[in-house]
Simulated scan of single mutants.
Amino acid sequence: MRKALPDPQIEARRRQPPPETVDPAIEALVHDIIGKVADKWTMLILEALHEHGTLRFTQLGKAVGRISQKMLTQTVRQMERDGLVRRTVHPVIPPHVDYTLTPLGESLGAAFCGVWIWAETHHAEIERARASFAGREAVPQLSEST
């Protein structure tokens, strides 16, 4: 994922202390958004559109790879509903539809760019931890009841 420019509003809020109370509506929205973007297809579509700009439906499917037409349709519809993607139908024969990220979708991509950078920065540490864990799992563990 290419590095996105930081959002000045978000960066200003990061410098402030956390709020004393949390608005339940905001908390519910955060849980909803995390649930959706944690879905691998949403993240892959977000990344494909961020990298390539506007794509036709079939191009988007190829850019994402290994996604069924049904899942691609469901995911882009949900993203359109949430205001992350703009769907444009061209009235030609045969008709074609293309998708592009909205400014809201771009800003979500920028927010998750930090996760990409974090993973890139800590890749070696994560691989060492996984190898260490796998090594411990290979050794029979003593039962907790003994």
Rank of each mutant, 00 (worst) to 15 (best):
A12S: 06
T100N: 09
A63M: 13
T42M: 00
D39T: 00
A111Q: 07
R14S: 03
K40D: 06
R56D: 14
A119L: 15
R66S: 05
E27V: 08
V76S: 10
Q16H: 12
R77V: 02
L5S: 15
T54Y: 04
H50T: 14
L60S: 09
E125R: 14
K40M: 09
T73P: 03
E120S: 01
V37F: 06
P18D: 05
G53H: 02
R130K: 04
C113N: 14
F57Q: 13
A131D: 15
G35I: 06
A12C: 06
F133A: 15
P8Q: 07
L46Q: 10
A129V: 13
A111T: 08
D23Q: 11
V97R: 02
T88Y: 05
I34F: 12
H31K: 13
I45L: 11
G135W: 04
W116R: 15
F57A: 14
T100E: 14
D98S: 15
P8W: 11
G135S: 07
L44S: 15
W116P: 03
P94V: 10
C113L: 11
H52N: 15
H96L: 15
Q9D: 10
A124P: 08
I33K: 02
I126H: 12
E47P: 06
W116L: 15
L72I: 11
L101R: 14
E120N: 04
Y99V: 10
A124C: 08
G61P: 01
H31P: 04
M43R: 07
T42H: 00
L72A: 15
L46I: 07
P18L: 05
I126V: 12
R130Q: 11
V115I: 13
L101H: 13
I45P: 02
A28L: 09
E80F: 01
P103I: 07
E27I: 03
L5Y: 13
L60M: 14
A63P: 06
C113F: 10
D82S: 06
R81A: 09
Q74T: 08
I26T: 10
T73W: 04
Q16K: 09
E120F: 02
K36G: 13
Q9C: 02
H90R: 02
V22L: 13
Q16E: 14
E20R: 09
E47I: 05
A63W: 10
V76T: 13
A28Y: 02
T54R: 12
L60N: 12
P18C: 04
T54A: 15
R77W: 03
T21Y: 01
V22F: 07
G114R: 12
A111M: 08
P95H: 10
L104S: 06
R87W: 07
I33G: 01
I117N: 09
Q78A: 03
T121W: 08
D32S: 03
W118P: 04
L46S: 14
E80Q: 03
Q74P: 03
V85Y: 00
K40Y: 04
T88M: 11
D39P: 00
R86M: 12
V85H: 01
T21A: 01
P95M: 08
A129F: 13
F57C: 12
G114I: 10
S132P: 01
R77N: 02
T102H: 04
T42P: 01
V85F: 00
H31N: 12
A129H: 11
Q74W: 01
G53R: 02
S132H: 04
S68F: 05
H123V: 03
V85S: 01
R86T: 11
A131W: 05
V76L: 10
L49R: 00
H96R: 14
S68N: 11
R77F: 01
L29Q: 08
A110Y: 07
A111Y: 07
